[in-house]
Design a protein around this nucleic acid. Sequence first.
DNA 1: ACAAATGATACAAATGTGGTATCATTAAGC
DNA 2: GCTTAATGATACCACATTTGTATCATTTGT
Lengths: 132, 132
Amino acid sequence: MKLITRDTDYALRALCFIAKNKDKVTPAPELVAKLKIPRPFLRKILQSLDKNGLLKSYKGKGGGFVMTLKPNKISILDVMRIFQGAFNLNECLLNKHLCPDIRVCILKKKIDRIEKYVVSELGSFKLAYLIE
Amino acid sequence: MKLITRDTDYALRALCFIAKNKDKVTPAPELVAKLKIPRPFLRKILQSLDKNGLLKSYKGKGGGFVMTLKPNKISILDVMRIFQGAFNLNECLLNKHLCPDIRVCILKKKIDRIEKYVVSELGSFKLAYLIE
DNA sequence: ACAAATGATACAAATGTGGTATCATTAAGC
DNA sequence: GCTTAATGATACCACATTTGTATCATTTGT
């Protein structure tokens, strides 16, 4: 079981790099070269980050990407949500069979508490911490 | 993202049912009927539980399964480990590309702490709690 | 006009999840 | 000993997800 998937990982690396460039526009080819992420895959990731408002893109020659927010305004959780969807650790228990008895409910409560913990830990961990 | 997969869920249901039967041998067909789990899938799950020492099986007519341990000696984590492998939330970060810079390490530490929390919560949550 | 960039979208390979099917083996009980 | 009811072992399959690829259109600075 992994908490952070490949695309989230790539996205974090890319964001860190772009953030370090400050206001300078960072083109995708530069990221490919420096971060060793497969080119088309990175392009897709950057497009997602753009659509979700974490990056602003400039088309055409001399184009590329810049941050829209300060790195201390973006959390790991924000990025995870884009690529891994909303947290829902209880998913399976409710999935197809409705919880038929009390035992599921007490386990569900436990898992809900765990989820709250994870969300709070990752939600307070900012991109800025990764850059210094 | 789900914390508990289908087979773990099924396994927990089956274990609860078998535990309630105490020393009485529980045959798989009874579990199929009562728990509405697809028959061949349940069989596979029971075999895993047997191989991992949580159940003892009796072959032949009148055969079936009994618990090998008291329900307060089995944790949710024990069952998860059988079906979902060892916990390793850091999996992806170390996956194919070795961590190239400090930023991965500090995030890794955070995730390690989260993992410790989850393991301790689920490791102390015993099957017995689900049965009462 | 050209070159360097992103946008959009469709495709494909590998892996994981959930489930099925089949046949062999064991043991109780008449 | 035969039948029957159970598990053991194993191979297979369908589908979804993950990871990655390929292609062409569009935009923009020089």
